[in-house]
Design a protein around this nucleic acid. Structure first.
Lengths: 346, 346
DNA sequence: CTGTTAGCGCGTTCAT
DNA sequence: ATGAACGCGCTAACAG
């Protein structure tokens, strides 16, 4: 049979309440008593029943982390950073909180389903990473859900996505638009005029903002928005490869390609090499995010660095109430242009 | 106040028991009644209380996944694959199970702590990824913990680590030794005789097995084991970079470097380039794992492909009881040599 | 500082 | 096919 708190109490000759207090460390207990209790716990190999204590306390030690795809370093880095901040003192039962990582695959339905599941678990907090899906119906459903979560006392932090006004959720957004603008300005400065753009999936804030930044820069230079040299696709290598092939076919004279992110850029580089184009001599290539492998690309990738780990760590601390929210519940985190070998003069 | 099962029951004019049955779908309920109940659930925005049902049912919908570092694609890929298999029908309450990802950072203490935390949550299953730490004391403690988990009905699957005999845990191990041997054989065949080896951290099964395979191949060719050209370090880029610099200093005449994994290999490549050595003309480089970025390295990395996603998916299915265990509870998964541009004739 | 008393919300017998 | 009653194991008042 499974050993319970009462068993420990009996063995330590104290009341169940005292055992609970020792285990949670929330109330003062005499050192001698505590010692006796801990010994009993040890001797009986007792392990607290999480569901039971969550039920009684009406809160759990679970923290949800929503990601598109945990296998993608972009999300893996953020998930790891959040997790590193949710432990430590402050929680019940030793202060160890558990991270529930939910792969939404970018699906609105799964996003909502997971939030319901986390609500069911009475999660202490939820961190939602990555851009949002731009669909009015889904946005309404999502915001309603966020509202309900925050009403129930679950702290919600958005990391890398635009604010969700009136929901009680805190937002740490990346300045994707500014980053996109800076990147394209850099290329324009190098003399590029015919620039292909491999965008992310449509209907996503990240995609739209980065693209808008690109077009902002183009417009500021008096150039057309290059819509006919803009292709969309998932944030993966295959997209970059296929799109680069396509771009080369459409416009053999292009001198630069901007990719939605570093992974896509890597695919584009491969296609360029296969087509016999030298980087950056014939075609410059730029990415976004500055994922760890980007510095080791050959040539190293020019990109926009997003402080993923720092931002996610901050999101984790805010979710735990260990850092105060930004004023207005919203903060915009800038990206930083990192110029490396993959871009050069046109 | 939070709405409970009883509220739903009242609104649907049925007993709480009936609502429970509808929600869990485990007992027959008249279609009309079910309809009424579901409508009430919807109208009240009712969300099941997870802790309460876990307490009553003595089991939860949580599945633990232990990883060294979720930001490392090696682990991210496995975690994602496990998660993709733990949903679906079979569980309670809609069959959706939640993945609790635990970053151990390779620390034995954290490994044990997380297992206790998962035991506390009454996790339905636990998948432990990556190699084990070779320390008798820790191994004993770990095995005892695994034993207790399996005794309590938690299914435990080891993915990418050697079996833990007598614990009730199923093991899907990678043939790191065979992979290491094959890789070094490949280099020997290309005429390399002075080979540097950048191993992983000491005291880890993965490190030891890959290194043993390397030495097996060396021995079979009648060569010394090359201990003086073997360096240890964490599985990261910095290790690869620093070790390659060191190796070049110790043995300027070396013609090949084998790295503990692809990430380390990338760091070594960078150091080699900085030192003016061409790959593979001057020095061949090989990695291990075949992570996604390896094909895009320049030159593309020769490596040993491990079917991470497939193995982890299988681990997930076994953990859910949806696939039968391998005979004896142990399966060895082979790696596959992938020859690309980073290795050439000596 | 410690013991006593009530539930927390649900699943599951047993009846019907 | 449905209802009534009990208990899962623990925490949180309230006493003392």
């Amino acid at each position: 049979m499974t050993v319970t708190l009462a068993d420990v109490a009996a063995r330590a000759q104290v009341s169940p309440a005292t055992v609970s207090r020792v285990l949670n460390g929330n109330y003062p207990v005499a050192a001698a008593t505590r010692e006796r209790v801990l010994r009993a716990v040890d001797e009986l190999d007792y392990v607290l029943n999480g569901p039971a204590s969550s039920l009684a306390a009406a809160t759990s030690d679970l923290v949800g982390i929503l990601v598109n795809d945990i296998a993608d370093p972009f999300f893996g880095i953020m998930a790891g950073a959040v997790q590193s901040e949710i432990g430590g003192p402050g929680g019940r039962a030793g202060g160890e909180r558990l991270a529930v990582v939910c792969n939404t695959g970018g699906s609105p339905e799964r996003e909502l389903t997971y939030l319901t599941l986390l609500q069911r678990q009475r999660a202490a907090a939820v961190v939602i990473t990555g851009g949002a899906i731009e669909d009015a119906e889904h946005a309404a459903a999502l915001n309603a859900k966020l509202q309900r979560l925050t009403d129930a006392g679950t702290r919600v932090v958005l990391c890398g996505r635009p604010p969700a006004p009136e929901t009680g959720a805190v937002a740490l957004s990346f300045d994707n638009r500014g980053g996109g603008r800076t990147l394209t300005q850099h290329l324009l400065l190098l003399g590029h005029r015919t620039i292909g753009y491999i965008a992310g999936p449509e209907e996503r804030t990240t995609t739209r903002h980065r693209l808008e930044g690109h077009r902002d820069a183009l417009a500021a230079a008096g150039l057309p928005n290059g819509a006919e040299l803009t292709l969309h696709g998932p944030y993966d290598r295959a997209t970059g490869h296929a799109a680069a092939v396509d771009l080369l076919r459409r416009e053999p004279a292009l001198t630069a390609i901007v990719a939605a992110n570093d992974t896509v850029a890597l695919g584009a580089c491969a296609a360029l090499r296969e087509a016999g184009r030298r980087i950056p001599d014939d075609v410059s290539v730029a990415g976004f995010d500055d994922l760890p492998f980007s510095v080791d690309a050959v040539p190293a990738l020019t990109t926009v660095r997003l402080p993923l780990a720092e931002a996610a760590a901050r999101a984790g601390r805010i979710a735990m109430g260990r850092e105060k929210e930004p004023s207005g519940g919203v903060a915009t985190i800038p990206g930083e242009l990192v110029v490396r070998g993959s871009t050069g003069r046109a």
